[in-house]
Each structure stands twice: as structure tokens, then as C-alpha cells.
Simulated scan of single mutants.
Amino acid sequence: MSKTGSAAKVKLNRFDDLFGTEKLQIGTEQVQEIALSELHEFKGHPFKVLDDEKMQETVESIKEHGVLMPGIARPMKDGGYEIIAGHRRRHACEIVGLATMPMFIRDYTDDEATIIMVDSNIQREDILPSEKAKAYFMKYEAVKHQGKRGKGNSLDEVGETAGESAKTVQRYIYLAHLSDALLDMVDKKKIGILQGVELSFLTEQQQEWVQVVLEETGMIISTVQASRLKEHGKSDELTLPMVRLILTEPKPIERKVTIKADKISRYFPEDYSNEQIENVIYQLLDKWNSSNSEK
């Protein structure tokens, strides 16, 4: 799958076009120093700006070298500029104590801006499931608005920048329908991705019930339990007592036994296949079980 990205298709053909470096060199566009107070967060921005180790690295870099890569923003109707790319750099500039930040100002449409905003962030290694879910949902809606459905699979286009399949993208888009509380549990790995997808089909009220029970009990929800909740939710039979019953029922013990090859090979000829070895083991276990039952 190509990793060129949809951002490159929004009247942009190369990395130089996206960040304006070539245009800057020939004098047709200039980097503008914009006051930080005039730079506003992208509406519905799905990516968190954290004061983590990587932010500190950005801060140190700006202290030493300044902002090496200008951000991208677009004018807002009521004044100021909406950041498309550069939220983390803006925050780092604030920490450093700068009053302005270098920006390219582009008059993009809502859909163009959304696609570029997502594509410029989605390849980071530390993205949370909640961030990816909201970002993919926003980009999917933007791609649909551009009327590209008949020109290929929109889900493939959404995931191409990060090299992810349409199936993976669809899962994350489902997750975007979870409540913030349940999405937070997915981020903290208290709910798995597959379980989260199943729960995303529940109503807001039903999701709240699940949240309450999980927080009360500290239980880990299984895929089977999530599927049962989804099925009962479809038929509008789900109630808080039923949610509590499903989530607190005893789970079967999962057993997985691995026998090392060097040990098992001592008991079988070299020409025995895996299937033949398994059959012999099952036969011996059946005999062992019968002899124990007779005692």
C-alpha cells in the first residue's frame, strides 16, 4: 500500500509543496511570523499535546535552533488563524517564551485542512487508539465530502499515509463511536480494540452502564462478553442488571500448554508428523483419564 498519503492529493504533489519550501525559494510565498495568541487549535483536533519527553526535546531544539520547520495555518472568519500543522511546535514556543511562530498561511477548505492535519500527525509512533480513532473518522468524512467514493475505497485512502489496511481503519472508525470514558479505557488497555469495536454499537446509555460496571468491579471484558452485550443491545433488551450479569459471570479458564520439541522428540521416531504425534498423545490421555475415572 502506498504511503504517499491523501495530503499529497489535495492540490499538493510533493513534500516541498506541503510545507512551501520550493515556493519560498522562488519568492512566491513567504513564511510569516504569527503571534502565538493569534494561532488557535484546529476544531476537533484529535491529537493530544502533552508535556512529555518528546515535547522537552522539541523545547530544547527550539531554544538552540529556533523553529526549523514552519507550521501551516489558515485564516479564520472571525480573525486569527486555525493551526493545521504545528500544534506541538506552538506549545513548545510557549514554553520557551517566544511571542511568535513561523507559519505558512494557506486558504484551505475544511476538507483539505482536515486531511492535511491528520496526515501530518498520523505516522507518529506514540499515537493512542483514541487519537487514531477520532483522526481516521475525521479524515474519512472529509474524503467522502470530496466525492471520491467512486474513485476507489475511501477506507484504503484514509489509511494509506500510515500504511494501514481498510479493515484496520474501519475498526478505528468504529471506536470513534465509543464514549470518551470507554475510549480512555481502550487507551489504558483496560478494554481491547476488538472488544471496543463491539461496544461501539451500543447506545450512549448502554455504554454508560458498561462503564459503570467495569469501574465498580474492575473486571476485564472478554470478546465473548462484548459480543453478547452488542447482540442484546441490538434487540433493545439490554438493561443495567443484564450488563452487570454478563460482565460478572465466571470466565472459563484458558489453558495453553507448550511442549518443547527437544523433549517430545525423545519419544517419537523422526519420521512421525505433528498430526501423528498429537494423535498418540490424545490416545494416551484418554487412557489416563479412563484409569483415573475407574478409581
Rank of each mutant, 00 (worst) to 15 (best):
G66N: 09
V257D: 07
D271P: 00
S293D: 12
K9V: 00
A181R: 12
E164H: 03
E278L: 12
S265V: 07
S200G: 05
V197K: 02
K189S: 12
D16E: 15
E254S: 14
T100M: 01
G79E: 01
I127V: 11
K54Q: 12
D17R: 04
R106T: 00
R228P: 00
T114V: 10
K188C: 01
D180C: 06
Q195S: 15
I277D: 03
E38D: 14
D262E: 15
A99F: 07
Q211A: 03
E125F: 09
A92V: 02
L183N: 07
K260W: 05
I173V: 15
D52K: 05
A99I: 09
T161F: 10
Q195K: 08
E125W: 08
T109M: 08
L12Y: 05
R149Q: 13
V212D: 09
D126L: 06
E160S: 12
A133N: 04
D107R: 11
L24I: 12
S291P: 00
F15M: 08
A142T: 06
S273C: 09
G66P: 05
C93G: 01
L285V: 13
D262C: 07
L39D: 04
A226I: 01
I84N: 01
F42V: 08
D78P: 00
R255N: 14
I259F: 14
L24D: 06
E215G: 01
Q225H: 06
H145R: 15
E160T: 04
S120V: 00
I264F: 12
L214I: 13
